[in-house]
């Protein structure tokens, strides 16, 4: 069970980082108090992992076969990558780090599920695009109804606040369902735990990250998104949840950060405003390229180090 700690740590850091994408807008705009939002997000995250997390776990564990040692190494490699990318200030995707590390182990075992890997990479490309397209469609449809009915200022306020709470809860549910695979799939692949235990442990560790360490990240990221008007913030939140939900049904863990950027870009196109800076896009693209490569390299290096043995010279 001690071997699981690497996964739990990864889940904790994932929860601490990715909660900002889900509840950042609601909290930093003071529509919802942090503890209310964090508690709801943690609860729905565990529910999502347990109820709908199996598909992603099956996909990731199918990428290659790992033994217990390799499972721990890939988990630690992903955690180290996430930490290094965070230090470099690049928007990191835990999904890409985990898949990169698994690929490293697959290369070592000369056993890689190419069709499965292709599906994952296509979904990575599709995440920001999905967020972008869903936002364009959702905004037009919801705006049509929003403008058609004369809802009073106070009712609009109540409606938007309730909608944002619901969409954030939905976002947390799909975050748990989608990203739990990143946390514990390798241990299922190594035969250490069952799928349902993996879903519960993974979901709980992500929830712990949300409850214990997400507050500073939520405040920082949220304040960058708060310039969006409340309606746009709600559309971004809902689009993010729908995008991740689609990939959860396909069974591929994706990055909520990349889905958010796609959604915010969509709002920019609709409003004719520059919602995301070119520099931010550049950094996201760099992170998109480097995260799996770095995780793969670290996994290979750790595996090499673990095989070294001390032979005294006679």
């Amino acid at each position: 069970m001690v071997s699981l700690l690497g996964g739990v740590f990864l889940g904790w850091s994932l929860g601490a980082n990715d909660a900002s994408n889900i509840i950042g807008t609601a909290v930093s705009s003071r529509m919802v108090k942090f503890w209310h939002a964090a508690f709801l997000a943690a609860l729905f995250c565990v529910l999502g992992a347990v109820i709908s997390g199996q598909a992603g776990i099956e996909t990731l564990k199918g990428l290659t076969s790992l033994n217990v040692n390799q499972a721990v190494i890939s988990s630690v490699a992903a955690a180290v990558t996430v930490t290094m990318m965070t230090i470099l200030g690049l928007p990191v995707s835990t999904s890409q780090a985990v898949v990169g590390a698994i690929i490293g182990m697959g290369i070592l075992n000369s056993q890689l599920n190419a069709p499965g890997l292709g599906k994952v990479v296509i979904c990575w490309l599709g995440t920001p695009v999905g967020g972008f397209v869903i936002t364009l469609v959702l905004y037009r449809v919801l705006a049509f109804f929003y403008n058609k009915f004369s809802i009073s200022l106070f009712d609009t306020d109540r409606l938007l606040r309730a909608a944002l709470i619901l969409s954030s809860s939905y976002g947390a549910y799909v975050l748990g369902a989608n990203n739990v695979a990143n946390v514990t799939a390798v241990f299922v692949g190594a035969g250490m735990i069952t799928v349902s235990t993996a879903a519960l442990v993974g979901g709980a560790s992500i929830a712990m990250g949300i409850l214990t360490f997400s507050r500073p990240v939520v405040k920082t990221v949220g304040s960058k998104l708060v310039n969006l008007d409340p309606f746009s913030a709600f559309v971004v939140s809902l689009s993010l949840a729908i995008t991740i939900h689609i990939y959860t049904m396909i069974g591929v863990p994706v990055s909520s950060s990349q889905a958010v950027v796609g959604s915010v870009l969509g709002i920019g196109i609709i409003k004719g405003a520059n919602t995301v800076k070119l520099e931010t896009l550049k950094r996201i693209f760099l992170a998109w390229l480097f995260t799996p490569v770095m995780a793969c390299s670290i996994a290979l290096a750790l595996s090499f180090i673990s095989r070294l043995s001390y032979t005294p010279v006679s």
Partner: peptide, 12 residues
């Protein structure tokens, strides 16, 4: 004291 969303607060 956190009634209404910030946009509505400012407008009112």
């Amino acid at each position: 004291s956190k009634a209404l969303i910030p946009d509505s607060r400012g407008d009112i």
